[in-house]
């Protein structure tokens, strides 16, 4: 699994179901980050040259490599805009989220 996905998490109702000590399964996500976004990155597949600069510099690891162009893992993208700012071809635009 390249990226963990959100899992259903039920808070323990009995003390025996709590982890023994403060340790838990690596990569266990109970929550998404999409709600943080005001703007979302939109990739123009035509303009993208697949140089992967955005992939390298994304603080959240939400740029997905593709055959010909990149795409975005929106569940965990926070909309910081680093990808759009670093894109040498202006292939990523930040578009206002509509909720």
């Amino acid at each position: 699994m390249n990226r963990p996905v959100k899992q259903e998490y039920n808070r323990p109702t009995h003390i025996k179901d709590f982890p023994v000590g403060p340790q838990f399964d690596a990569g266990h996500l109970a929550d998404e980050n999409a709600g943080w976004r005001t703007f979302k990155p939109v990739v123009d597949a035509e303009k993208c040259i697949n140089c992967l600069i955005c992939y390298l510099v994304c603080p959240d690891g939400t740029i997905i490599k593709g055959e010909n162009h990149v795409s975005v893992a929106y569940d965990y993208c926070k909309g910081c805009g680093v990808c759009a700012n670093e894109c040498p071809k202006d292939a990523i635009s930040m578009v206002k989220e509509e909720r």
């Binding site: 390249n2 963990p4 959100k6 996500l29 943080w36 140089c51 965990y76 910081c80």
Partner: peptide, 25 residues
Amino acid sequence: ITAKNMTEKEFFYGHKACAGCGGSV
């Protein structure tokens, strides 16, 4: 190592760092 040949697996993912956090990079 380049972006092309590095693993696609993300090891630090779903964290709650501020948007645009350089430390996370």
